[in-house]
Design a protein around this nucleic acid. Structure first.
Lengths: 202, 202
DNA sequence: AGTAATGAACAGACTGGTCGGTCTAGTAAA
DNA sequence: TTTACTAGACCGACCAGTCTGTTCATTACT
């Protein structure tokens, strides 16, 4: 357990261990000592690579969310029909998270509730996702595939709806497979924006 | 500042101060010393009335959420049309939170992300709200006002959508008034479940 | 009535452990 | 020798929870 030339660099191992621990116990309950222990490194190493626990957490979440955004973009880039792009993206989100609980745990759960200052810092990250949704919705509106809704609002509603659904799946002991509800989710979300009805006044 | 006979009991004052502080700084950043200072009581008093910080937080959130649920139920009890009941409830949620940021901060933000054990304990609270929505949806399905959707799923999606919307409103510096988007929110949610379209396969 | 005893409610100093962060001392490669 | 990196002992602040009282209202007793 000494300075062997590992396949993965110390920095990477720290990031990995931190991801696991944040996922399992949340930001405040995952302490630096555990992180370095699980990563097989040391305090010195940790604070050589990162200025603080908070900064490293921020960076980690940033990196994970970027990776997810890119993955989603890749999963729809081949499709040109705006409506189908949206459907593909929804499926990709659910599929990715259902295969990577750890990722879900961090991006869905630990990104909120760590105190107002941290929450504020995490806001841009949710913005990334909302932005992705918004762009697709805008495309669909332009092409006339869906009605001209407030895409800013809708993107947030969708983000929240999906997050809550995933959150439940994460926190329940015997959750039904995420993908099982995918078709109905698509239905419900799409029905809200699709052309059929105009601006009803309920 | 001695043992004067105050209008509010010490226990109440502690709960109030805790609510304020949790709202402003989150569970982990609001320490007991601050709570007792702001409530004008003492450590002794705190630990006389509550077994621990965690238990008191749990109790507080429980109490707040109960109060909100009752308020929502009261706001729709006069209406018998299932569809209108749902619309009333949506408005009531948005209105209540927009008038009580503190409540929103606690119930929307601080109820998630405090570590897995706490998150689990908070699950039943979100269940209360989801259950309220579900009951109304069930009523609407029965009466034929909306299509027979998976009300379990839909209630969660709605809960998430509303939460996210409120979260953004809370965390932004210059948020647009919550109620401003209420009509469009109603529209989007309702369109998802209303009779117009059957089970599309997008 | 007067007063002593009891216990609930409160005050606040103190403790013990935790944990982020620092510091000194390495080690390995260039 | 210098530079990049790693190790781990150590520190100091913080903070939930404890402990030793004190106050005050009620009850018990004479």
């Amino acid at each position: 357990m000494a300075t062997r030339t590992e396949a993965r660099t110390a920095k990477e191992r720290i990031l990995d261990a931190a991801a696991s621990l944040f996922a399992r116990r949340g930001y405040y309950n995952a302490n630096v000592d555990e992180i370095i222990q699980q990563s097989g490194t040391s305090k010195g190493s940790f604070y050589f690579h990162f200025p603080s626990k908070e900064q490293m957490a921020l960076g980690l979440v940033d990196q994970l969310s970027d990776k997810l955004v890119r993955r989603l973009e890749r999963s729809i880039e081949a499709e040109s029909d705006p409506l189908k792009r949206i459907l593909l993206a929804i499926d990709a989100v659910l599929l990715t998270f259902s295969k990577q609980r750890k990722l879900a745990q961090i991006l869905i759960v630990n990104i909120v509730g760590q105190g107002k200052s941290m929450d504020r810092k995490f806001l841009p990250i949710r913005d990334k996702f909302a932005g992705l949704i918004k762009r697709e919705l805008d495309g669909a509106v332009e092409s006339g595939a869906i009605r001209p809704v407030d895409t800013n609002l809708v993107s947030r509603l969708w983000l929240g709806a999906l997050s809550e659904m995933i959150l439940r799946w994460l926190l329940q002991e015997k959750p039904r497979p995420l993908m099982e509800s995918a078709p109905e989710v698509r239905d419900l979300l799409m029905n809200g924006v699709v052309m059929s009805r105009g601006g009803e006044s309920w």
